[in-house]
Design a protein around this nucleic acid. Structure first.
Lengths: 167, 167
DNA sequence: CGTAACCTTGACGTACACGTAAAGTCACAG
DNA sequence: CTGTGACTTTACGTGTACGTCAAGGTTACG
């Protein structure tokens, strides 16, 4: 029998809430990237080191899965480098920090600074996206002009053939 | 004196029209890519081998410059690989062929086939672009939600400080 | 306790997109 | 005719983003 370990509860280490933790294989399958890629992203600081099972097995959260999907989007669809993406991911980290500090008492000026920083980074990202949106729009318009041209040519060939038949 | 060879008329080889031909250095400067990159694109079939001066110097046309700019757009902005881009460029080639055959007598069926092929490739490209447009749109919406969140938080800090002052 | 399935950390390999250095050629000024 | 700058090919080097073993530890089931 091909045995498959039950999606077991973490034996130790993970922030002892009752989340559904996933091993690297599951995450790989769900996200469509390889295990190597997941380790590589961790090594490069794109994914925070996940919690571990006592044996050393990585245990990922659903949040981690979402992050991986986000990274793949940014990379394959939008052509950002992992370095770019790391910056963006770090902005996400800042957001988490802000949320964490929200409950606790923290220097207001410090909180302001972090929010300002996060705002700045996010605005740069929006600008980049706007740039790409415009470029893509122009590109699409070009392609549709071409398609229109092709339709015209096809029609001309139709008429030419019709003339030949009736001629 | 820093000598610069006059943007000389091609001594030989180039399709003997009176276009303004550019050497590789000029093209590199105008397009912002290196000479190495231009030779590399040629090697990879992304740029058709340009005409040469009798000494072997490459002579590029304005069309070539436009193509280089298009390639850079596709690559850096949209994240296509050079292999992808080569396909697209080859579609462009087909279009040129169709235009060339338009004047001459050519098999109608052959012309139809080429137009059909070009249409197919172009439609695939439009589909890819649409995909990216949607992804970018969603990403932008996400970022703007974040920005709104940041504004809310900043406002909360404002009010908190105001309360502290008046308290 | 055996063993299959799953995981771990190295460490080396690879495809892509060029960078860079070497050694020689070409064009024109002086 | 020589110097200088722009160009040529050839060839090896580099950074990114992983792929691919290899050797071994861990977990769960029978």
């Amino acid at each position: 029998m091909t045995q498959k370990r039950s999606t077991a509860a973490p034996t130790i280490e993970p922030p002892s809430d009752d989340q559904a933790y996933l091993q690297i294989g599951e995450v790989a399958e769900r996200t469509g990237v390889t295990q190597r890629t997941l380790r590589f992203y961790e090594e490069k600081g794109l994914l925070k080191p996940p919690s571990r099972l006592e044996g050393g097995f990585r245990l990922y959260s659903e949040d981690d899965v979402r992050r991986v999907e986000q990274i793949k989007q940014l990379q394959t669809l939008l052509g950002f480098t992992l370095a770019d993406i790391k910056e963006m991911v770090e902005a996400e980290e800042i957001k988490s920090q802000i949320r964490a500090e929200y409950r606790r008492d923290a220097e207001i000026s410090e909180r302001r600074a972090k929010i300002a920083k996060a705002t700045e980074v996010t605005e740069r990202q929006v600008a980049v996206i706007d740039h790409k949106l415009r470029a893509l729009g122009e590109m699409k318009a070009d392609l549709e002009r071409k398609l229109a041209q092709y339709r015209t040519w096809t029609q001309m060939l139709d008429e030419l053939e019709a003339a030949q038949k009736s001629g």
